[in-house]
């Protein structure tokens, strides 16, 4: 009588088919339709295609010469690097430090995780106020320190870094919590044995913690890199339409702009296809570089 539900595989279908249908209707069909749309001439949202583009692959040719898309791809690459170093890197350091303190671990977990629960739009508005030109928090603070004249923190020279700071800051806590969970899974015995053998604290981190945390870090890096391709809300709130001078385009914001502002839906679909392809390629590369190790 034991678990007959698992012996008769047919019963599993009852669960699997609805889930598959859900995925098929809300993910795979739209995805395939999106590929189809990228070859069609669609001039407004929700409208049917007016036939094939001339030639049908014209959007992909256009992408090759699109200066804004090049900027978006370049900025997204920078964003990936920032997420790896700034999000996962800082999260590793914070996790190691919190793991090594005896009291207050729960407090820090809550503190670092908190930004995740705030909506990105609200954070975007908040950082807008922080970096506001007139009466912004940073400029007021600098004024108090004796600086004369206001700094435009959102101009061409600063825009990219100002956009990336809040994105980085928001997600550190997410990876921090994943890494802390990974750290908790490392048996305490190993550290005790190492301590008896005279290993220093750094040696314990270097030869026990980091190798055993490798797979978790790998997962975090894959999530961070693919997440960087989709970043949209916070940058769009702070720097709509690639402001200033198209310096802050990301693949996500540029795709949205093409769909909702210029109503070039087919071109936007082509950019969406590019984002998916890039997502697959980059996650493959990351998996290759950070190949999971078995211990």
């Amino acid at each position: 009588m034991e678990s007959s539900i698992y012996k008769k595989k047919r019963n599993l279908l009852v669960f699997l088919v609805p889930a598959f249908l859900f995925m098929a209707v809300f993910l795979y069909y739209p995805f395939l339709k999106n590929i189809w749309n990228s070859f069609q001439n669609i001039s407004s949202l929700g409208a049917a295609g007016k036939g094939w583009n001339e030639p049908w692959y014209s959007n992909y040719v256009k992408m090759a010469g699109d200066k804004n898309l090049r900027t978006a791809l370049f900025n997204t690459l920078i964003m990936m690097a920032v997420t790896i170093v700034g999000q996962v890197g800082i999260a590793v350091v914070l996790a190691l430090m919190v793991d090594n303190i005896k009291r207050g671990g729960k407090f820090f977990r809550t503190v670092y995780f908190f930004p995740i629960v705030i909506s990105a739009t609200a954070l975007g508005l908040m950082f807008n106020l922080i970096f506001l030109y007139d009466k912004g928090m940073v400029n007021q603070f600098l004024e108090m320190l004796g600086k004369t004249g206001l700094t435009d923190w959102k101009d061409s020279a600063h825009a990219l870094i100002i956009m990336m700071i809040p994105v980085m800051w928001q997600y550190v806590g997410f990876y921090f919590v994943i890494l802390i969970t990974g750290l908790n899974n490392i048996p305490e015995d190993l550290y005790e044995v190492a301590a008896i053998d005279g290993a220093t604290r750094w040696q314990r981190v270097r030869y026990i913690t980091l190798p055993l945390l490798r797979n978790v870090i790998c997962t975090c890096v894959v999530l961070a890199v693919t997440g960087a391709l989709k970043v949209f809300d916070l940058p769009w709130v702070m720097f709509p339409k690639g402001m200033p001078l198209g310096k802050t385009w990301l693949t996500g914001t540029y795709m949205y702009y093409q769909a909702f502002n210029t109503k070039n839906v087919d071109y936007s679909s082509a950019i969406a296809v590019l984002i998916v392809v890039l997502g697959i390629v980059t996650s493959k590369i990351v998996n290759k570089v950070f190949k999971e190790a078995e211990y």
Binding site: L132, Y133, D134, K135, D152, K154, D155, A159, M243, L245
Partner: peptide, 21 residues
């Protein structure tokens, strides 16, 4: 135009106007 005319949103430049700048 304001120094930040290329990077500011409309509500920011409007605030410069109502704020006496």
């Amino acid at each position: 135009f304001p120094e930040n005319t290329l990077s500011a949103k409309d509500d920011e430049t409007f605030a410069l106007f109502t704020g006496g700048k």
